[in-house]
Design a protein around this nucleic acid. Sequence first.
RNA 1: GUCAGUGUAGCUCAGCUGGUUAGAGCACAGCAUUCAUAACGCUGAGGUCGAGAGUUCAAGUCUCUCCACUGACACCA
Length: 514
Amino acid sequence: MNMKYTITTPLYYVNDKPHLGSSYTTIACDAIARFQRLNGNNVLFLTGVDEHGQKIERTAESKQLMPQLHCDEITEKYKYLWDKLNISYDRFVRTTSAEHSALVHQFYSKVLKADDVYMGRQSGWYCVGCEEYKDVDKDDKKPICSIHKKELEWRDEENLFFKLSKYQEQIEKLIQIDGFISPKSRKNEIINFVSKGLKDFSISRINLKWGINVPGNKEHTFYVWFDALLGYVSGSLCDQTSPELTDKSLCNWPANIHVIGKDILRFHAVYWPAMLLSAGMETPRSVFGHGFLTREGQKMGKSLGNVLDPIELLEYGGIDAMRWYLLRDIEFGEDGDFQMRRFVDIVNSDLSNTIGNLLNRTITMSKKWFNDKIPVDATLLAESPLKYQSELRINQYMKSFKDSNFKNSANAIIELANSANLYLNDRAPWKLIKDIANKEIVAHDIYCVLESCRIIAILLNPFVPDLSIRILNQLKIDSSTINFQQALHWGMLDPDNGLQNPSPVMEKIEFNET
RNA sequence: GUCAGUGUAGCUCAGCUGGUUAGAGCACAGCAUUCAUAACGCUGAGGUCGAGAGUUCAAGUCUCUCCACUGACACCA
């Protein structure tokens, strides 16, 4: 097939170090990217950071750093974490890069040509945290932002405006398209919002140095959102060094999916497509707004002091545990609750007890009775109930994964492992082998279970690539070139290939309350 | 305030157009047990299905009211 498939995480705001929420989004994207690659698609997996805006400027100031240095510092933390989480991104976009600002200028000139920009005046109470004007009473003397609990600032300034209202009908049509906005519940909210009439929005700020300058308007810099969203384009250009918005240069555009948190869905599903329409570019194929994570039933926040640091979690449970738990136990799209007890239980049960132990017990038997080779009768393979099971579960897995239903996909893997465990208990090869006449039957049984393990390892790959490779290594399978189309056929395991000595592929996590 | 969604075992959730003793996984208890990471397997205990009222021969499943949580919009701060 070899289709181009472009997937993006949000460009994370470098106001602070990465938190569990951004890790969650990024892990989900990584799973999708890996899944698509295994399906033979040519994937461009894009992530990056959004570095401009007043909030950054002030944060840097409070740290007595130049904004750029502050951004560099935080950007490094993101890169470090993505590295630790084995995120297979292809490009990392920085909105402070020269290429990016060149692209923003190019894009802006297109929007200008479309006659979609005008100078307007905006006054009102402004929240720097939100980077947004708030609808509050003008007579109020000390209004406070309901989200940030900070005092608002009075602003009265000239801004450039983008004619969002002009795209009312086109946006209405776009958001109706089946699959454009997921999950469905959020789609309805956006439709509702758009139906009330789109208002033009400002795309520039004055008196803000930390931003990309607006050509022709010295005092102005671009509003962070206008700037940040374009990072998706600058990151997906074929040749990033010479940003030109032509059909050729846009070979990775449009994005197949923007994965974001539910809080910024409107920017992605409404503002962003309108901007692209204005510039005569294609709109993204889909936008997925996932839910938020709470911790032990409570919102995570600095004020509550219950923020879960991804690095800490990683050190505690390991990368496979973290990735597995987030993808397997939390409904993608819905809000989810992180519970330490459950984290430990789920990971131990699924990865150590069900899958790890299955592999371990089977390899042990194989080594004990057949040394390295399994004398299996190939003609019998086609009739194994495990063959049927694996096909059933592969189907379930594929179907669910395409809907970004990671939970159900992961369940399919566990079901297959359960079946294999049951099969062993049922066949009891350790009893059969006592009669040497049964050796062939036992070989067949062992082979079928090992083959199930191989398929399990491959299906696990997008979820927990490290564990997947550890399993394949024990089966002495080269993990560097696998793809679904070839690898998911029953009977691909070479019986003469030999096996590595078994050692637990997944250590258990010990639960300790902290 | 308006609209939408959710509320089912300790935890995470299934239960389509109403129909016999409400399900799964995890956790827990007991049994069994080595091929295996005290793992796998079997058995079991656990729910007045958010509350109340109504429709019906029959409601987790339909109607109404209320409560809690989540979100959107509006309003206020």
